[in-house]
Nucleic acid binder design. Sequence first.
DNA 1: GCAATACTGAACCATGTGGTTCAGTATACA
DNA 2: TGTATACTGAACCACATGGTTCAGTATTGC
Lengths: 121, 121
Amino acid sequence: MVQYCRPNLDAAFGALSDATRRGVLEQLGRADASITVLAERFQMTLTGMKKHVGVLEQAGLVTTEKVGRVRTCRLGVRGLQEEAAWIERQRQLWAARFDGLDVVVEELKQKEKVNGRNKRK
Amino acid sequence: MVQYCRPNLDAAFGALSDATRRGVLEQLGRADASITVLAERFQMTLTGMKKHVGVLEQAGLVTTEKVGRVRTCRLGVRGLQEEAAWIERQRQLWAARFDGLDVVVEELKQKEKVNGRNKRK
DNA sequence: GCAATACTGAACCATGTGGTTCAGTATACA
DNA sequence: TGTATACTGAACCACATGGTTCAGTATTGC
């Protein structure tokens, strides 16, 4: 039913443009959760939270599975690969545009390199 | 510091959720451009393009300057720093959730490509 | 069996979005 | 000076979004 694994940046960035949904992703980064738990955490009706989860699911950022009465939500395995890739490519264009005259950009690039490669195992 | 730091992720990700606006950013990554040029490139009225540029400007991704009749648009110096940072942090959570399961994740990704996810039912 | 739990779907509402047209204003230039 | 260019703003349109309520259905557990 739901389309997975599509590099749909529109849907993904759209999903990320809402603070509640970003919060849900952060929450799911710590532990899987049911719709009820998420709704309580974000002070919202079940129906409202279900919609948010639906948006995240459509964007391929979250997967859900219903067992008995409970629908459990977890992070999608795809992660934010496509989105990170687009942003990184754009950041390179940015850097090129400001090449040689923007120290800040250079600093940021270095910082990112360090942070990014550190966690890799 | 040119920080100009409004970490308004809502606005930024919202701006990125439209293909036309991502295209404008890519375009501006190659060269500055006027509203007219952008409107022609993306086959849109001046007014329509002005709105898009307004959204990008509001999100801090683009700056504009009017000289004479012409408003020139260029990439904002802030870049996609905040957005990249959020995504990177989230990717770390993702990785942590799937920690030690790297091989499994790879497998799932492959399966997903093949099956199109029919785990329901 | 029955009540509570957990979700689902339809319908509604206010507001926002992506686009248009039309009617301007300000500037450039012959 | 007059006209073409480049943008601007208001108004409008259809549709999407973020939420709600209400009325269900399916499961769980006593």
